[in-house]
Design a protein around this nucleic acid. Structure first.
Lengths: 113, 113
DNA sequence: GTCAGATACATTAGATTCTTATGTATCTTT
DNA sequence: AAAGATACATAAGAATCTAATGTATCTGAC
């Protein structure tokens, strides 16, 4: 089972930031594979979604990049900047809070029982 | 605190379906107020988001409507159709599953501890 | 009695963010 | 040598929300 794509909307940036917070530096392809692995294939980040997100994080100054060559192939590593670390804490706690709220909403029983 | 709008994306339809499942019939404005109340103002559904969503649910055959007059003012009630009830179960359990996955992701600790 | 704020519907331009498709190139395994 | 994995990137289009705007009625305070 793969989650319907609409569910991923809005959480991608937070997922990426959290992975970077836990792993110091990662490159794009690695992020897609890690998420796929951690979620047992239930979340599959496409490249068309990931790369624009990474570029946006960079232009917002939340991540820095360093390019490395593996043989002739380029690999672009992303790391959190100081402001990126703060932002990550904010986003992660907001998302955790949001999920608690959603859990509550989904458990609500009828008013007119 | 109000959740950043991006978080609501993709969950609105499920929230509406769940509320209708718990309350037999509700009208649009009532839904916005109920969500606001249940979430202590942290989720505020705007009308521009809600009405298109309700109309989409109706054209998908997931809800039926009945119009009522309160004095001279119109009020449009929405109720789940049989297929809407099935859809609600699917969406709610998918979202619950998704939230468990996200909680797991957000709790992940560094691989390189 | 009138004015503000709440109730109640609706639409629309624009922004954001994702999907799907495409492109380029290298490396590895059979 | 070919297929599949690795690795970057962009771009047209779809979906969905925000913010603004519009119409109209009801209610409570002054």
């Amino acid at each position: 089972m793969i989650y319907s794509s609409e569910l991923i909307k809005g959480t991608l940036k937070t997922i990426v930031l959290k992975l970077l917070a836990d792993n110091k530096k990662m490159y794009g392809y690695e992020i897609t594979q890690r998420v796929k692995e951690l979620t047992l294939d239930k979340i599959q980040i496409t490249e068309g979604a990931l790369y624009p997100t990474l570029h946006a994080l960079e232009s917002d100054g939340l991540v820095t990049t360093e390019t490395e060559f593996i043989g002739k192939r380029v690999r672009k590593y992303y790391s959190l900047s100081p402001s990126g670390k703060n932002k990550t804490k904010e986003k992660v706690s907001e998302l955790a809070d949001f999920m608690d709220t959603m859990k509550f909403l989904l458990d609500i029983k009828p008013k007119t029982a």
